[in-house]
């Protein structure tokens, strides 16, 4: 099970992610109880049902899925997980930026999948605030060093809306 980094520390993940097995469809898959992160397709197919029986709802967005399609629903989600099937697939950084900057999503934004030490700095800047570090990686070292290789940055981003040139003394 992936190790979750949240609030600057390793923590226990209380959420489970619904996976659609072979032969199942978003329409047919059984909805588990508890704190569940639902794939976007399941959310779209079963929205009313999910809302009626879940107090806390999570959403999973894949790289090729459009945040625009759920922009009106963001108030329902306690956590949104953005999937990085491979760490070199950078689409999730744009998804995160859009969620935070354009759609003003305020809840937990979680990076899941191939989440590694050396990308944490960029992930934090686009607006992630929890990170399911890949299995087998040293979570203590990642917490200590992964977020702070650089003390500042030139660009505007979610965590620093003013670019450096507007902050120069």
């Amino acid at each position: 099970m992936a190790q979750l980094i949240k609030h600057g520390t390793a923590t226990v993940d209380t959420w489970k992610t619904l996976e659609i097995a072979e032969g199942e469809t978003p329409e047919s898959v059984a909805l588990p109880t508890g704190d569940v992160i639902f794939p976007l397709a399941v959310w779209q197919a079963r929205k009313a049902e999910i809302i009626s029986c879940h107090k806390r709802i999570g959403l999973l967005i894949q790289p090729d899925e459009r945040v625009e399609d759920v922009a009106a629903d963001l108030d329902y989600f306690v956590v949104i997980a953005i999937s990085f099937p491979k760490f070199v697939d950078g689409r999730g950084y744009s998804t995160a930026s859009l969620l935070r900057q354009r759609y003003k999503y305020q809840g937990e934004l979680r990076a899941v999948g191939d989440v590694l030490h050396d990308q944490l700095f960029y992930m934090r800047r686009v607006g992630f605030n929890s990170y399911a570090l890949k299995d087998g990686k040293n979570v203590a070292v990642a917490v200590e060093a992964g977020f702070s290789p650089f003390s500042d940055a030139y660009q505007a981003s979610t965590t620093q809306p003013q670019p450096y040139f507007r902050r120069r003394a």
Binding site: G90, Y93, S97, Y122, R125, Y154, Q155, S157, F165
Partner: peptide, 16 residues
């Protein structure tokens, strides 16, 4: 030079 700074460690576009 302004573009150099903007491209350097841009958080959203490091994995194009």
């Amino acid at each position: 030079e302004i573009l150099r700074q903007w491209t350097t460690f841009h958080p959203e576009f490091a994995f194009l």
